[in-house]
Amino acid sequence: MKEQQKKPEAKRYLGVIIAGTAFLIFILALPAYREKSLSMMVYQAKTMLLVIPPIFVLLGLLDVWVPREKMIKFMGKGSRIKGSVLAFLLGSFAAGPLYGAFPVAAVLMKKGASFFNILIFIGAWSTTKIPMLLFEMSALGNRFALSRLAIDIVGIVLIAWAMASALGKEEIDSIYKNAESME
């Protein structure tokens, strides 16, 4: 999992302190909402704390066990469907927010992954992460989560294809050159 920038504790929790103070003022000033907001908070906290621990354990395990290096080797140009499936899996088994995917994409480009596969990887990272899917199923229901997964897989491929065709060879080359120059 992508580590967050280490800021001093007090600064990181500044938002919490502000929101907490606002909440205190809110329930003291408007007693009419007190009961509803408190029960809402307890309910939300319970749901989240019940579901979050196994997700983080899964994310931690994926991070440690998925052999990135080996997968990357099979994602080069001319790798066809196998490379794309691997790119998809690599993105789906990743951990962390979308902006964590960009540096990894740069590494993939340096190792020769095709642009189409890079885009598949970014798309998968953004929407089809597996622990997240389990969580989405429990929070929003199976129908919601699974239908979104199905349409998103179509979308990831469509967007990758559209972009790989719309951006000319020159532009793609310059993106790769840019990736080379990054540390």
């Binding site: 938002g15 919490v16 929101a19 907490g20 606002a22 909440f23 809110f26 909402y33 509803k36 907001s37 408190l38 809402m40 908070m41 939300q44 906290a45 989240m48």
Partner: peptide, 12 residues
């Protein structure tokens, strides 16, 4: 925690 508080306030 921030989202928790905001959700509690707005949904009440």
């Amino acid at each position: 925690l921030v989202v928790l508080i905001l959700v509690a306030i707005s949904l009440s």
